[in-house]
Structures are given as structure tokens and as C-alpha cells.
């Protein structure tokens, strides 16, 4: 199994955190991982992208040029992701902010209202965690089980009080995709 994911959004949306936590969870599940972020010099609002690979075998190129799954967190990222996505790949769209849809018909598009779901849980800032749950459910590449203990080893102790909130966000994302698939 190799899942190559391209993540794109703007600075401040938590793209880098999303990618880093995704590969951390994958590593804890025994997978090989690479995470290559690239972002603008701006503190907020610049481009934020990540090439992320998780695999049961040694990973060749860390650069994702033909992704098996892509994450579109903002409107500007849609054409970029549409331009590189592999035929038949999964495209997860943050439908709270992205109003357009890809013109390509060879992609498996899944809409996830990340911001609305995050706000329902209590904080719009955890929209990225909703998306991570959705990515797990849509690809099955990283199971995100034992989530609580993995998050405890990832975050410093001062942040542990936010773990239940993050877990709820991730589960909401998983559920959102599961409902779409069964519908």
C-alpha cells in the first residue's frame, strides 16, 4: 500500500499541522512516511502545500506529482489539485470555503464541510482535523485508531487539554465521509 497525498490551502488553515500529524499517526501504525511542506514567507494567507506519502514499503520520491488523493482547503487550491490529480484519485474538498467544483469527471470527489463541522464541535480552527478524519475514511491508508494515545505523544503536555476536541473533530470527518459512502 502506498498513498500519496497532495494537500493545499492557505497559511493559517493548518495544512502543515495536518500533514505532520497524518504522517506521525501513520508512523505509529508501522508505515514508512515522508512529509515535505512548502509554504510562502507570509505569516498568514500565503500558499501552504504539503507532499505526503505513507507506505507499507520503502518510499521512493518524497515529491507527490501524481497524487492518489488530494485535499483542497481553499478556492485557489482547486485548479492546482485538479491539474495534478491522478485519474481515479480521491479529491477531498473543504466545501465550507470552496464553492467551485472540478470540471474533470475522472476524479472521486468528496465534499466535506470542514469549517461548519468544526464550528459545531466548538472551534473553526480544527477544520484541518475534520479533514484528516475524512482523509482516513476516504483512503483507509491510515486508520487513526489508538488516536488518543498517539495525540498524547505528539502534543506537548500543555496542549493535552485540547486532545478531546481534536479527537471529536477527526471522528466527525470520518463520519461525514462514511455517511456519504453509505448514502
Amino acid at each position: 500500500m502506498t498513498e500519496r497525498t497532495f494537500m493545499a490551502g492557505f497559511g493559517g488553515q493548518g495544512i502543515i499541522s495536518l500533514g505532520m500529524l497524518w504522517v506521525y499517526c501513520a508512523m505509529k501504525e508501522g508505515l514508512e512516511v515522508t512529509f515535505f511542506p512548502f509554504y510562502g514567507a507570509e505569516k498568514r494567507g500565503g500558499i501552504a502545500r504539503a507532499s505526503v506519502v505513507v507506505s507499507s514499503a520503502e518510499i521512493a520520491s518524497p515529491l507527490v506529482t501524481s497524487p492518489d488523493s488530494s485535499i483542497v482547503m481553499n478556492e485557489d487550491s482547486l485548479p492546482i489539485c485538479e491539474g495534478v490529480a491522478r485519474t481515479g484519485s480521491v479529491m477531498l474538498i473543504n466545501s465550507s470555503l470552496v464553492k467551485s467544483r472540478p470540471s474533470r469527471k475522472d476524479l472521486c470527489v468528496v465534499e466535506v464541510p470542514c469549517v461548519e463541522l468544526a464550528e459545531e464541535i466548538g472551534d473553526a480552527k480544527i477544520a484541518n482535523m475534520v479533514m484528516m478524519g475524512a482523509l482516513s475514511a476516504a483512503t483507509g491508508a491510515v486508520m487513526l485508531d489508538h488516536l488518543e494515545s498517539v495525540l498524547k505523544s505528539f502534543f506537548p503536555e500543555t496542549k493535552h487539554k485540547f486532545i478531546p476536541l481534536n479527537v471529536r473533530a477527526i471522528e466527525a470527518g470520518q463520519m461525514a465521509v462514511a455517511q456519504k459512502v453509505s448514502a
Binding site: 505532520m20 504522517v23 508512523m27 514508512e32 512516511v33 515522508t34 512529509f35 515535505f36 511542506p37 518524497p62
Partner: peptide
């Protein structure tokens, strides 16, 4: 720079 910037196990 990619080796320096990327994260792996």
C-alpha cells in the same frame, strides 16, 4: 534542501 526540510521516521 529537500533532505533538510522534509520529515521522515
Amino acid at each position: 534542501g529537500l533532505i533538510g526540510q522534509m520529515m521522515e521516521g
